[in-house]
C-alpha cells in the first residue's frame, strides 16, 4: 500500500531522515517508534505530503505522492501531535466543515457527519462547542475530523499524549475497530507500552535512520530469541557461538546471555544438554520475552554494536595503512 524508498529530509544543518526505506501493507496498525528527535513527525508529515523530501520516493497505491499530493490527501487522514480545533464551532460544524472540505457532496454530508460522530462516540455532543470538550473528547473530535472522509490510511502523531489511562484504552479499542474496518494506521509514539496494545508491526527510527522493521513479538524465520543465565559465564559465549544453529550471541541488558536459536523444542533441548555436558552451570534457559520495549532496546543495542564494530574496523584499517606508509 505504501512504499517508501531512499527517503531523505533535511532541516538546515540536520538530516532528519536518512535513506529511509520500508513497505506498509494494508489493514495493519504499524507503530512508528523512536526517541524524541528521531524523525517520527518529519516522516509522518512527509508521508502526508505536507513537507517535501530532499530526495527519495513515496508511492501510495503505486502512485508517486510528489506528482499529485492533492490526490494523496484524499486517501490520507493525518492527526498532528499539536492539532488545533475551531474552538468556537460545535462538534457538528467542525465535522461538517471537514467533510465539505474533503469534497463530500452536500447531500451526503449529514450522514457522513453522523457516521464519524458515532464511530468516535461523539454523537451525543454534536451541539457542544469544541472549546467546551475535555482533552480526551478533543482528541476524539480531532480523529473524527481526520477520518470523516473515510481515508484508506490514517497517520497519527502521538495520539495518546496527555490522555488518562481510560481514554488511552478507549483510543486503542478505536484503532483496532478502524483497522477491522479496513483502514491502515501508522501511529507514532515513544511510549511503547501504549503501542503494544494494538500494533502488529513496528518501524524503529533513530537519528533519522530506520534501524528495524519488525512484527511485534513475532519470531523471525522459525527462530527464537533465547535467554541463558549461568553461574560463571567464562567461556560460555565462545561455547555458544560454536554450537550448531546458534546465532547472534550477546549480553542482554540484565547481564544474562542472549542468543538466537532454532524455534524447535528438540533442538533447544539438545543445545541445553550440550551446555550442561560441557560443564556450564545453567541457572535458567528460556525463550526471551519479546515485548515491544525489549525488541526496541535490542535493536538499539545492536545498532550501537554495529557502529562500534565499524569504528573499530575503520581504526584498524587506518592503523594498517599507517604502518604500510
Amino acid at each position: 500500500m505504501i512504499k517508501v524508498r531512499d527517503l531523505c529530509f533535511d532541516y538546515p544543518g540536520t538530516r532528519a531522515l536518512d535513506d529511509v526505506s520500508f513497505d506498509i501493507k494494508a489493514g495493519n496498525i504499524i507503530a512508528l517508534v523512536g526517541p524524541n528527535g528521531a524523525g517520527k513527525t518529519t516522516l509522518l508529515r512527509t508521508l502526508a505530503a505536507l513537507d517535501q523530501p530532499v530526495s527519495g520516493q513515496i508511492l501510495l497505491d503505486g502512485k508517486d505522492i510528489s506528482e499529485n499530493p492533492r490526490e494523496v490527501h484524499q486517501k490520507l487522514g493525518y492527526l498532528s501531535d499539536f492539532f488545533g480545533l475551531y474552538e468556537e464551532l460545535t462538534v457538528a460544524q467542525c465535522l461538517r466543515f471537514h467533510a465539505g472540505s474533503h469534497g463530500i457532496n452536500s447531500e451526503d454530508i449529514a450522514a457522513t457527519v453522523e457516521r464519524a460522530a458515532q464511530r468516535l462516540g461523539l454523537d451525543d455532543r454534536l451541539h457542544q462547542k469544541a472549546k467546551e470538550l475535555s482533552r480526551g473528547l478533543r482528541q476524539r473530535l480531532a480523529i473524527a475530523q481526520a477520518i470523516v472522509h473515510e481515508p484508506k490510511i490514517l497517520l497519527l502523531d502521538e495520539p495518546a499524549s496527555g490522555l488518562d489511562p481510560e481514554a488511552r484504552h478507549a483510543l486503542a479499542t478505536l484503532f483496532c475497530q478502524l483497522r477491522d474496518q479496513g483502514m491502515t494506521l501508522l501511529v507514532s509514539s515513544h511510549i511503547l507500552t501504549e503501542l503494544e496494545e494494538y500494533c502488529s508491526h513496528m518501524l524503529m527510527l533513530r537519528h533519522g535512520k530506520l534501524i528495524a522493521e519488525d512484527g511485534v513479538g513475532q519470531a523471525e524465520n522459525d527462530r527464537c530469541d533465547m535467554q541463558l543465565t549461568v553461574v560463571d559465564d567464562d567461556g560460555v559465549m565462545a561455547l555458544l557461538s560454536a554450537c550448531d544453529g546458534v546465532l547472534d550471541v550477546r549480553y542482554g541488558d540484565d547481564q544474562c546471555i542472549c542468543f538466537s536459536a532454532p524455534d524447535d523444542a528438540l533442538k533447544q533441548h539438545l543445545l541445553l544438554k550440550e551446555l550442561i555436558d560441557q560443564g556450564v552451570v545453567v541457572v535458567s534457559f528460556k525463550p526471551r520475552q519479546t515485548d515491544m520495549h525489549r525488541q526496541y532496546l535490542d535493536k538499539v543495542q545492536q545498532q550501537e554494536r554495529d557502529i562500534q564494530t565499524k569504528a573499530v574496523e575503520k581504526n584498524i584499517g587506518l592503523d594498517h595503512k599507517g604502518q604500510e606508509a
Binding site: 505536507l50 490527501h73 492539532f83 488545533g84 472540505s101 481526520a146 472522509h149
Partner: peptide, 13 residues
C-alpha cells in the same frame, strides 16, 4: 497559530 493550517492544506479544496 492555532494549528489548524495543516488540516486545511490536506483538504480537497
Amino acid at each position: 497559530r492555532d494549528n489548524t493550517w495543516d488540516a486545511q492544506r490536506m483538504s480537497a479544496m
